[in-house]
Design a protein around this nucleic acid. Structure first.
Lengths: 187, 187
DNA sequence: TTTATTAGCGAACAACTTGTTCTCTTTTAT
DNA sequence: ATAAAAGAGAACAAGTTGTTCGCTAATAAA
């Protein structure tokens, strides 16, 4: 890929993140983005079809990175098979999120970023589903598998949002304990 | 209130709902609404400050109705105190949602209706919080109370969305059973 | 190093959206 | 019957979107 393209793409992403940190997605205009990124209008539309397209690309980049990195640690530890492992998959995820604080969390907490939430959850769904299918074929209490998957990833997203709104006072380890407490009983 | 105002307000609400059923909130313009409601531009802005304001009003109307109706039944049955009551609070809620299928569910499932989700969850939060505070002062496993409240209402919203996406194949009673199965263990 | 290719710039553009401000007409309450 | 309130309708500035022009500069390949 052309160096110019890389630079432009990076500039747009960075500008977009900075803007997302200060105002809600729906109020950010393409004009804002190209002003902040200091690129021409034409250039923006050469890279992305729409603003939504940009958000999608950003989500894929961020979550793709986090999830794949988390999946790596899955090969050694199961989802929750090793009950007292200091590094459960979800704890790993939370740590990543904490590290990416400036990038991701502003995004997630900003109102109306429904698209962002959707990508986050979609990534989680896949992660959880992989774990369920590869590991335990049994679902407790006759609950539909997709219901359970949805419940787990949905609860996780909700928890993370709650965490952010509360200014992230808890450590990833604490949060992980909370999450285990409400999820393990249903596994 | 003036009869004209009532009629106008109703027309706008109805037009708004119809539009929400067919396209996403973010793509609905004020122009669409006033065309569908057949009211003047001035009239719309005399009633609502912005489009968001309209959504807020609609949410308050819909959820206010459902929640308060559900709260009534709370006085007889506790949240889950009467374990096998045919009418738990959540089941009650789900039945209401099913009845309002055409109105509410299209709204909730439509993409980007983050505001709508927020109001739904805010209403639920209050409902759950009331139950928690009035009823049992003990939270299991040392989980923070607001975490638990968030977990419960968040899970409920997620479940409802999952329900809708899956074309509402389950009955409210079935859903209620699912929900109890994943929530009761943490109470 | 030269050259063809590609990316980006900047301006202009039509089409649309928003929210406001007029004037004029109709409905309502009293 | 009449004053007050609500709505219609048109016009408006300001802003947004996505596209299309040439024109310039960076890049990769020869």
């Amino acid at each position: 890929m052309d160096r110019r393209q890389r630079k432009t793409r990076a500039a747009i992403f960075q500008a977009f993140r900075a803007l997302l940190a200060e105002k809600s997605y729906s109020r950010i205009t393409v004009q804002d983005i190209i002003d902040a990124a200091d690129v021409g209008r034409t250039t923006f539309y050469a890279h992305f079809e729409t603003k939504d397209d940009l958000l999608k690309a950003l989500c894929e980049e961020l979550f793709g990175h986090i999830i794949s990195s988390t999946l790596d640690c899955t090969h050694t530890h199961g989802l929750y098979s090793d009950k007292d492992a200091p590094q459960s998959v979800f704890c790993h995820l939370l740590q990543h999120l904490q590290e990416d604080e400036n990038n991701i969390l502003g995004l997630l907490s900003s109102e109306s970023s429904e698209l962002f939430r959707r990508y986050f959850k979609a990534s989680l769904n896949q992660l959880v589903q992989d774990q369920f299918i590869n590991q335990s074929g049994k679902n407790s209490a006759g609950l539909p598998q997709d219901f359970l998957i949805n419940h787990i990833s949905g609860s996780f997203v909700e928890m993370v949002l709650w965490w952010i709104k509360g200014r992230m006072k808890q450590t990833p380890e604490e949060l992980d304990r909370y999450f285990r407490a409400v999820i393990e009983p249903v596994l």
